[in-house]
C-alpha cells in the first residue's frame, strides 16, 4: 500500500467509493443467487455483478492507475467491453437451455413453445 501514500483525495475518495459500491453490488447479486427460489429468478442475480459491479471496479482502477502512471489508462475498457458483450450470450443460452429442459419435462411453470414450422416432407 506504500505506493498509494501520495494519492490526492479527489482521486482516492471516488475510487474508494466505486470499489466499495461495485464489490457490494456483486455480493448482493450472489446473495440473490443463493436465496431466490426459482431458476428463472436466479438468472437475474448475476447481472448485478456483470453490469455496475464490473463497471464500478474497472472505473476505480482506471482512475487510480491513470493518476499514478500520469496518462490515460484504458486497459480496463477491454475487460469492460468484453464482459458487456459476452454476458448476454451466456445468460441467453442458459435461459434457453433451462426453457428447453423444462418443456421437455412438461413443466407447467413455463410458457408453451411457439408452433414449429412444418418440417419439409422427406421422400
Amino acid at each position: 500500500m506504500i505506493w498509494m501514500q501520495n494519492l490526492p483525495l479527489w482521486v482516492a475518495l471516488p475510487a474508494a467509493l466505486l470499489v466499495v459500491a461495485g464489490s457490494t453490488l456483486t455480493l448482493l447479486g450472489t446473495l440473490g443467487l443463493v436465496t431466490l427460489k426459482s431458476f428463472y429468478d436466479r438468472l437475474h442475480a448475476p447481472t448485478l455483478g456483470t453490469s455496475w459491479g464490473t463497471a464500478a471496479i474497472l472505473l476505480a482502477s482506471m482512475l487510480v492507475f491513470g493518476w499514478t502512471e500520469g496518462r490515460l489508462v484504458l486497459h480496463e475498457l477491454v475487460i469492460g467491453i468484453f464482459v458487456m458483450v459476452t454476458t448476454p450470450v451466456t445468460l441467453m443460452l442458459l435461459g434457453r437451455a433451462a426453457l428447453y429442459r423444462d418443456r421437455g419435462e412438461g413443466s407447467a411453470e413455463v410458457p408453451e413453445a411457439p408452433p414449429e414450422p412444418a418440417p419439409a416432407e422427406q421422400p
Binding site: 428463472y40 437475474h44 447481472t47 454476458t87 441467453m92 435461459g95 426453457l99 411457439p114
Partner: peptide, 28 residues
C-alpha cells in the same frame, strides 16, 4: 436489443422466434 435487455438487471431474454417476431422475456 439482446445486450440491452440482458445487461439490465431484472429482465432476461429467453427466446426469439424469427418466424413471428415474438420475443419471450422473463421479468424479475
Amino acid at each position: 436489443l439482446s445486450i440491452i435487455v440482458t445487461a439490465t438487471p431484472g429482465t432476461a431474454w429467453l427466446e426469439y422466434d424469427p418466424e413471428t417476431g415474438v420475443l419471450l422475456l422473463h421479468v424479475f
